[in-house]
Design a protein around this nucleic acid. Structure first.
Length: 297
DNA sequence: ATGCCTCCCTGATAGC
DNA sequence: TGCTATCAGGGAGGCA
């Protein structure tokens, strides 16, 4: 599920629990998720101190007091939750839902901080499209999962000229190009739809059609680059989007889904003032696209 | 190289 | 109620 804003929200939620803590033990409850766990998964983590939690695109990275670095992807349905203490007492009243959900608790990190307080962090992933892999720290950026990733849509690096460079000559639909992690890393189906709506550009348009020359900018490139940066920043500020069962690490809900202008709004009125159009759903590259044909051209 | 398709897996929901 | 079909935020691998 998670796109960049959700992964960043998870990172920020886990940071205070992990950073500076020692991993006392790790429970690995099955041999694989999307990929097999590394053979030395538990042994390499046990007893390590966590230096920092990072993020690249939709990947979390956990940097330890020695190699390797843990690379973690949430796939479509992965989530973390933090439990205080080390016993099995679990707060909350929804025992039925919890026990059902616990079948997909695949990894449990048992942590201890400097003050001796313990906590647990549980990784849950019903669909098991997520994964955890190791990389040597010195060559983290060369790891196969990270090596081909494009530019982060955060900060100011993604501007009109950069976008023009990335999209020039591309024949694929603009929607497909923005989903391509090798160009821009971290956008997913929701935020691509939302960014295109904000920019007033059709997802069906040929990507290269807004970028007449490599490295050159124009009004459309500027608008789209700004829309991408802003929708990502807005979503991070809102704590991401909480769809279905996705929650933040502390169990609270992000609320950006209330700000969707097109995603999952098929048949509803376009929210652009004065537009009067109706949001449509089409399928591109096998995935739903939501857009307003009236104001997105 | 580029673009498109299928597949991995489970759960929620809609329709009968 | 219960069955079945469809769909879901991602990305790797294979194909033309």
């Amino acid at each position: 599920m998670p796109e960049l804003p959700e992964v960043e929200t998870v990172r920020r939620g886990l940071q205070p629990v992990f950073e500076g803590a020692r991993i006392v033990t790790v429970e690995q409850r099955r041999p694989d998720l999307r990929f097999p766990f590394p053979a030395d998964f538990v042994a390499s983590l046990t007893g390590r101190s966590v230096i920092s939690l990072g993020r690249r695109a939709k990947y979390l990275t956990m940097h330890l007091d020695r190699d390797p670095v843990l690379i973690c992807h949430l796939g479509m349905s992965g989530s973390f939750r933090i439990l205080a203490g080390s016993d099995d007492a679990v707060p909350g009243a929804f025992h039925h839902e919890r026990s059902k959900n616990e079948a997909h608790d695949h990894v449990v990190f048992h942590l201890e901080n400097d003050a001796g307080a313990t906590s647990r962090v549980v990784f849950n992933d019903p669909r098991r499209f997520g994964f955890m892999l190791f990389s040597p720290g010195a060559t983290l950026h060369e790891h196969p999962s990270l090596a081909g990733l494009g530019i982060e849509p955060t900060g100011n690096a993604l501007d009109g000229a950069m976008l023009g460079d990335l999209l020039h000559g591309r024949r694929a639909p603009l929607k497909a190009a923005l989903l391509d992690q090798r160009l821009i890393a971290g956008l997913g189906n929701i935020y691509v739809c939302e960014a295109l709506w904000r920019a007033g550009l059709s997802p069906r348009r040929e990507a290269g059609s807004i970028a007449p020359a490599p490295g050159r900018t124009n009004a459309r490139c500027e608008r789209l680059a700004e829309a991408i940066r802003e929708v990502i920043a807005d979503a991070i500020a809102a704590g991401g989007s909480s769809l279905r069962d996705h929650v933040q690490a502390d169990g609270s809900l992000g609320y950006f889904q209330h700000s969707f202008n097109v995603y999952d709004r098929e048949g509803e009125a376009c929210r652009k003032p004065g537009c009067g159009g109706t949001v449509q759903r089409i399928v591109q590259s096998g995935r739903s696209t939501f857009y307003c044909p009236s104001c997105q051209r």
